[in-house]
């Protein structure tokens, strides 16, 4: 007992301990993901559940993604115009807007938006099911809770994130058109010609790779946090659900941005 308190008070050991537990939980999350993916193909009945989740993650996000897509594109158009006009090359606006959207902002903003909309509710819903015995009830009915709750969400995210990212990109390019062409008077042909000549397949494919990875990260982290609500050491009951949700959103966003950097540095 004495030794244990010794460990807790020694700052270096405390750092080591939290590092070990962090690495452990990363390993756990990875295994959780593998199990979730394996169970996607466990039964043909999974398809209906995946469609149900796609409705929630995808269809219901159409409006909000379009909304932030158009405003992101419009602000890029404005900012880009006033920067480029100083060099007299405002004709490059189309290239600037489309490359920024397709390479960076599209995948990242979509991921962060869907984290707030769907990731948080995944964590909260599964967390509530955990503390009200619903997951145990599934287990006892011999329904694998991972297959029933987690796999459809991961599958639906893997499908929806790239699709929503594509929507965001296109709407954003239209938003840039609105400010650049209709408001500030760039030639519309030049705008689209610049987009056409500057964007190549590698940019588009890179954006989709990012969206795919973000979908995996967000759904896995959110489901993991919800699923392990009862194992939280900082709180019990309803408070643990709220802590799980917070952790899911924060961790998802942080890992999204970190992995964004890593993927970008590999792609370039």
């Amino acid at each position: 007992m004495q030794q244990q308190t010794g460990i807790q008070t020694n700052p270096v050991a405390a750092l080591g301990r939290s590092t070990i537990s962090f690495v452990n939980s990363l390993g756990d999350i990875f295994l959780f993901f593998l199990e979730g993916v394996r169970l996607i193909f466990s039964s043909p009945k999974q398809l209906t559940k995946i469609i149900r989740q796609m409705y929630f993650i995808g269809s219901k996000s159409l409006f909000v993604i379009s909304l932030i897509g158009i405003f992101t594109g419009m602000v890029l158009g404005l900012q880009g115009y006033y920067t480029l006009v100083k060099f007299g090359s405002e004709g490059l606006l189309g290239a600037a807007v489309s490359l920024t959207l397709i390479r960076e902002l599209g995948p990242v903003l979509t991921a962060i938006m869907i984290t707030g909309r769907a990731g948080s509710s995944m964590a909260a819903e599964i967390g509530v099911m955990r503390i009200s015995d619903q997951i145990d009830a599934l287990d006892v009915m011999d329904i694998n809770p991972m297959a029933y709750l987690v796999s459809p969400r991961i599958a639906a995210s893997i499908l929806c994130f790239p699709l929503l990212t594509a929507l965001f990109d296109v709407i954003g390019i239209l938003g840039g058109y609105l400010t650049g062409v209709t408001m500030l008077g760039i030639n519309s042909g030049v705008y689209f010609y610049r987009i056409d000549t500057s964007v190549v397949m590698a940019d588009v494919a890179g954006g989709f790779v990012k969206a795919l990875v973000f979908g995996i990260i967000v759904s896995t982290i959110s489901c993991y946090q919800g699923f392990n609500t009862h194992k939280r050491t900082d709180s019990v009951g309803p408070e643990s659900v709220s802590n799980s949700t917070t952790a899911a959103v924060v961790l998802s966003c942080v890992l999204t941005l970190v992995s964004d950097y890593v993927i970008t540095s590999f792609l370039l």
């Binding site: 995808g58 397709i102 594509a166 929507l167 296109v170 964007v199 190549v200 397949m201 588009v204 494919a205």
Partner: peptide, 13 residues
């Protein structure tokens, strides 16, 4: 969304 994917990959890509 597939329409958008199509635009991005075929037209731009």
């Amino acid at each position: 969304c597939l329409l958008c994917v199509g635009y991005l990959t075929i037209q731009l890509g």
